[in-house]
Design a protein around this nucleic acid. Structure first.
Lengths: 345, 345
DNA sequence: TTGTAAGCGTTATCAA
DNA sequence: TTGATAACGCTTACAA
């Protein structure tokens, strides 16, 4: 009997193991899952046969029956943003500690993808989902409530009492940074937003306006810019900010990636940071600390939020009793580095 | 009839739809999948009912029957490394174009995770896998050949003719960079490796030694360092390189992330780059172009390799005829930026 | 055009 | 301690 190379390898099932070891499939199942009772000899035999013929369980069948996959998913807008990677890492830790695996889903900032994931969660083969949606409309919320699997949302400050959420008020974060900039004597502060039609986009812009009002500063639309939440987006927007003559003495960026792009452009133009223009970001990604000059930023505690969300979700998944939805909150923290304070001397 | 809030939502199945619309489950299936023949009226009715009672297919059952999930997985060592993100993005594009979804798996540089993924691929609920393993032992290869689902490996130059692979000789890449540094008049070139027990670690170190030999340079073990393939790893190693008195005039880093960490430390110490020490990385991540000074690097065409691997895999998945395994290769490219050439004037 | 029924590979209940 | 057997929710011959 020869094995035809390249032919689709036949699936060896629990039935094969049962036949070859002369027991019933029920017994094989019990031995393999160490459930119920079975004899020592039987176990040895079954295990040996299973190894010999290369049995490997079919998880499709298994989870169809058990109604669980022991996997959770994390859906974020852009894996290219280190802040989401940091979040993913802490989610993965928690998941692993509970015997769950993490599946990463990148929506590429597409609302359609977000919808798709929520709508047919079972297609992801997971028991639950953590999602940090870029868009969070009523429709999103409706879908989330109707979902058959537990979902935890990581988002801004607008919470829905019926949805498990981990919140952070990034508008407040922007205000923190604005205070700082103002305290440093900056007065023409430009705001570089990411996509303004997104949850973070809206919140951060609002924070900017709120600061202006609080400090009795004029609202100058010529100082407001928008681009993508990316390095390239920041770089590209910087060319605009500089060349359209807005003449700011500081640029408040909606995230670190953009801020890094801005720094790059300013440096290329020999504009001194922070002397000529101060730059502040948001998210506290590792590259910010490493940049030159190092980037002042506002931490939104991504890792912490990931951990909280994961614990919330796993608690839902593993605990028996029905608990009502919970909203957890985290508060932004300002991290001052070189890009915003002029060193005298 | 009241809906008990918070109670586990009951799964609505194809049977419910069938009952409520007064047809058989077979018909429902046909309508929902637009397969076989069915009457227009029936279709309308079924669709309406399905929507009304919120039917959503159970993918577990579906793929148990059909033996396909229309998903593929990409397993990489560290999602925190932008080079893998770039790779993931191009894989995702190809996958999407073929109607497949991409599931991201991060092994956190753990060999055990890599093994686990290959061994029980069915647990990932995917039809195929692309893996860029940090370790690639005989055992890895054995497992890959025995796998029931197609696997494509993205790795160095040591190919196995029985395994679909996308290769790049990073040793050659290091040599390219070394030529460049030597041409710039550097003579005490330190090598900062990542984990030396990994595929890239071994290859890159070999490239370094090969260059030395080729140019008749002495092999000085005091110039060889190793750390993690991360930003923090690079930073930490730089403190060693500088403080242990190796006195190099250039540092060849095994990847960009490490190089960025090195640059950070050198700058903190007011060591001029490239004047005092030139720095070169490898991978060509976006942050390298943005760094200060911008980073000379060697592109290993990550995006390109991702695309090739994805196409190879999807071809396996969708084409009927059995083809024999293929090995594709890509060649490294030097990208010269500020960190390695002194500008005169 | 539709329905019946046989699986897909498991787990789990119930007898033996 | 073990074995039949009925699900799990779906697709797909085969019949009607």
């Amino acid at each position: 009997m020869t094995k035809k190379t390249g032919s689709p390898k036949a699936e060896v099932t629990i039935t094969d193991v049962a036949k070859k070891s002369g027991v019933s499939i029920a017994t094989v199942s019990r031995v393999l899952n160490q459930t119920g009772r079975y004899g020592d000899d039987t176990a040895r035999k079954v295990l040996a046969v299973a190894r010999e013929i290369g049995y490997t369980p079919n998880y499709m069948a298994k989870s169809l029956k058990r109604k669980k996959t022991e996997q959770i998913a994390l859906a974020v807008a852009d894996m290219g943003n280190p802040v989401y990677v940091a979040m993913a890492k802490s989610v993965q830790q928690v998941a692993k500690a509970h015997g769950y695996r993490l599946v990463l889903l990148s929506t590429e900032a597409l609302a359609s993808e977000e919808f798709g994931i929520i709508k047919s969660l079972s297609r992801q083969y997971v028991d639950g989902l953590i999602i940090s949606p870029l868009l969070y409309s009523d429709e999103h919320r409706e879908l989330i409530k109707e979902a058959k699997q537990p979902i935890v949302v990581i988002t801004g400050s607008e919470s829905d009492p019926d949805i498990d959420s981990v919140l952070v008020d990034s508008s407040q974060g922007v205000q923190l940074a604005m205070e700082h900039l103002l305290a440093q004597g900056r007065s023409r502060i430009a705001f570089l937003n990411g996509r303004p039609d997104t949850v973070p986009g809206v919140a951060r812009l609002n924070g900017y306006y709120a600061s202006l009002i609080e400090h009795g500063l004029p609202r100058d639309e010529n100082l407001v810019f928008a681009s993508d939440f990316t390095l390239a987006g920041g770089y590209q927007a910087a060319t605009q900010i500089i060349n359209e003559g807005a003449k700011p003495d500081a640029i408040m960026c909606a995230n670190d990636l953009m801020a890094l792009g801005v720094i790059r452009y300013l440096r290329e133009q020999d504009i001194r940071i922070p002397h000529d223009i101060a730059v502040v970001g948001m998210d506290d990604i590792e590259h910010g600390a490493t940049a030159y000059p190092s980037l002042t930023t506002v931490s939104l505690l991504a890792a912490e939020r990931g951990r909280m969300a994961a614990e919330l979700l796993l608690n839902r998944l593993t605990s028996e009793e029905q608990q009502k939805p919970r909203q957890l909150q985290v508060v932004p923290r300002l991290i001052v580095r070189e890009s915003s304070v002029v060193v005298q001397g």
